[in-house]
């Protein structure tokens, strides 16, 4: 029986980042797991509400988490922002009694939600549940000779004590992923520095400065292309970095290596 996960796509994956969604689903079935889209999911809000007294802005995440709990499934995300928000809200529901109490008081669920669901990023599923060695075995078109820089950005890694994704200053999950596809990973020091994020809307010049540093650093270390998990990172690196280095969603390369047609 195939592994089944509750899947939280998020707003952008239904619009500007459709290919992230499509390739991820197709690769999943090729690798023997299934993403079951959460019914009536609501937008996560894009940024985690830092105010300790904010409840309303966390409820969409709690609803998704509770849905996964009701199906006894792990919740899988793709977009870095969705992952960041849902993972942190889940931590609040587990470890912050005030947030837990007030969110449950509002939602009036049959049984209170207390952070029971395990939140996984798609990359973590590949690493921890499927195994990069198995992915390497499934690769049909190894990306031989391609030098790929993994761009992590901020939200998957930090704050590390809550995200528990990888070493926040020297991560390796995406490098291992790249190697599993038969390509060569290029480590560059700006891979965990900010692309400019939401500031790009009102101050594109800030985003230009920051994303420019990222692409220059990657190019300096000889990367032919970059991969990312985040639509906003992809946008900033494409639009604002003033570099022509191609940027792909990591699932697009996965699909290519697995020999999957990534058209809808």
């Amino acid at each position: 029986m195939a592994l089944k996960y509750s899947y939280y796509p998020g707003c952008t994956l239904k619009n500007k980042a459709k290919s992230l969604d499509i390739t991820a689903r197709k690769c999943a079935s090729a690798l023997g797991f299934e993403l079951e889209e959460i019914e009536n999911w609501q937008c996560c809000g894009g940024v985690y509400p830092l105010g300790s007294d904010e409840i309303a802005t966390k409820l969409s995440s709690v609803r998704a988490l509770d849905y996964a709990k009701s199906k006894s499934q792990k919740l899988v995300t793709l977009c870095s922002a969705c992952h960041h928000v849902i993972k942190r809200v889940n931590d609040d529901m587990k470890n912050v009694p005030d947030t837990r109490m007030r969110a449950n008081n509002y939602l009036k669920l049959d049984t209170p939600y207390c952070g029971e669901t395990q939140v996984l990023h798609y990359l973590e599923v590949l690493r921890d549940e499927i195994g990069f060695d198995n992915i390497a075995k499934a690769v049909k078109n190894p990306l031989k000779g391609v030098k790929i820089g993994a761009y992590y950005g901020c939200m998957l890694l930090r704050p590390s004590k809550i995200m528990e994704f990888d070493n926040p200053e020297n991560p390796q999950i995406m490098e291992d992923f790249i190697k599993a596809l038969g390509a060569q990973s290029v480590i560059f020091p700006y891979r965990n520095e900010c692309c400019g994020g939401h500031v790009a809307l009102k101050s594109p010049e800030s985003a230009q400065k920051l994303s420019g540093k990222v692409t220059r650093s990657a190019e300096g270390f000889g990367a032919d292309m970059l991969i990312t998990a985040c639509p906003l990172c992809l946008y900033n690196l494409n639009k604002n970095s003033q570099s022509d280095i191609p940027v792909y969603y990591f699932t697009e390369l996965l699909a290519k290596a697995l020999g999957i047609d990534s058209e809808e």
Binding site: N15, C79, K202, L232
Partner: peptide
């Protein structure tokens, strides 16, 4: 410090929804 009326002049054809959502949350 951001209103819906500002949006058309700030976006392009590739602007991800995520950017708008995040910006509204922050501003």
């Amino acid at each position: 410090t951001l209103s819906a009326n500002d949006i058309p002049s700030l976006i392009d054809e590739d602007t991800p929804q995520q950017l708008l959502v995040s910006a509204f949350r922050k501003y």
